[in-house]
């Protein structure tokens, strides 16, 4: 047993988990409020990554400081992804509020296909290398064999986003409105909460965190294509369900558990079966805890 290897896998798992968590937040919030599995959520993450790639590519010729370019690209990616998120909600989900739930799910699947092919046609089907904009941080040199700079940034950013997010949900007016709407839409409406606005805001926040995830992962992995959103979306969804869908702490916990399971599974057993670990783990957890790790048991209301 090699302890450096263990730590490396552990950090790798945390990194994966962070990205899953950033995407899973959006899944679980949308589910909590409108009970929709937003299949197109992964596409928002992909669009975030692509927007950042495009912006940094376009700014590369200006000779600005790479770190500044990265920050601009990240901000633009967040703004645009959030815009895509709320537009998507207006077009594909809002008209379906009263429709059977599966109809909204199919609409989401259609949206996912549309956005994938939209990026494919407007940009390219090939993998695009993501420019290296972040210089190596000097203080990480001693531990560079187990953790690199992008990993470090992913972990720190995720931690900051999670803290801000928790504060938002706990203490702001809109956060309270979101929690109220998730509990009982009709009651929320009766006490004067503008439910449509809350839903829009949910998409806005969820899309923004997904975009942050997209930007971070592309600078870590170094290349992207139009298809990255689908797989990441499914994984993040698995994470959200693992934690108990609709529960925000659940989504975060589920993401880290999933990330670590995958990392250790591939590191110690076999990399061919990477996804099998994730899925098998999910099945086992759900058989013993049918509402996920932190989900409330579905109480039968009579």
């Amino acid at each position: 047993m090699n302890s450096t290897y263990f730590i490396e896998l552990f950090l790798g798992g945390l990194t994966r988990g962070s990205i899953y968590a950033l995407i899973a937040l959006g899944y679980t919030m949308v589910y909590g409020i409108i009970q929709l599995i937003n299949f197109a959520h992964g596409e928002i993450y992909m669009i975030g990554a692509f927007t950042a790639l495009i912006v940094s590519g376009a700014l590369a010729f200006t000779g600005l400081d790479p770190v500044l370019i990265f920050l601009i690209a990240a901000v633009v990616a967040v703004v645009w992804s959030a815009s895509y998120g709320i537009t998507m909600e207006k077009i594909a989900y809002k008209p379906l509020r009263k429709a059977p739930r599966l109809s909204a799910l199919i609409s989401a699947i259609g949206m996912s296909m549309f956005l994938q092919n939209y990026v494919l046609l407007a940009q390219t089907s090939d993998f695009q290398p993501f420019p290296e904009l972040i210089p190596d941080l000097a203080f990480l040199d001693p531990v560079s064999n187990i953790m690199n700079t992008t990993q470090f940034i992913i972990l720190v950013t995720t931690a900051v986003v999670m803290i801000l997010f928790t504060l938002l949900i706990r203490y702001t007016r809109i956060g309270k409105a979101m929690r109220a709407t998730a509990q009982d839409k009709i009651m929320a409406q009766l006490v004067g909460i503008n439910v449509n606005r809350v839903i829009m805001f949910t998409f806005l926040i969820g899309s923004s965190t997904a975009a942050i995830g997209g930007v971070l992962i592309s600078s870590h992995v170094g290349q992207i294509n139009f298809y990255i959103g689908f797989i990441a979306g499914i994984k993040a969804f698995v994470a959200a369900v693992l934690g108990g869908i609709g529960s925000i702490p659940g989504a975060v916990l589920g993401s880290f558990v999933l990330g670590l399971t995958e990392s250790f599974g591939t590191g110690y057993i076999s990399s061919d079966y990477e996804d099998v670990f994730a899925f098998a783990f999910l099945i086992i957890i759900l058989i013993f805890r049918p509402s996920g790790l932190l989900g409330k048991p579905t109480k039968k209301k009579v």
Partner: peptide
Amino acid sequence: FPIMVIKVNTV
């Protein structure tokens, strides 16, 4: 705008 107008080839 970013996706339809700008086409970047980073290769």
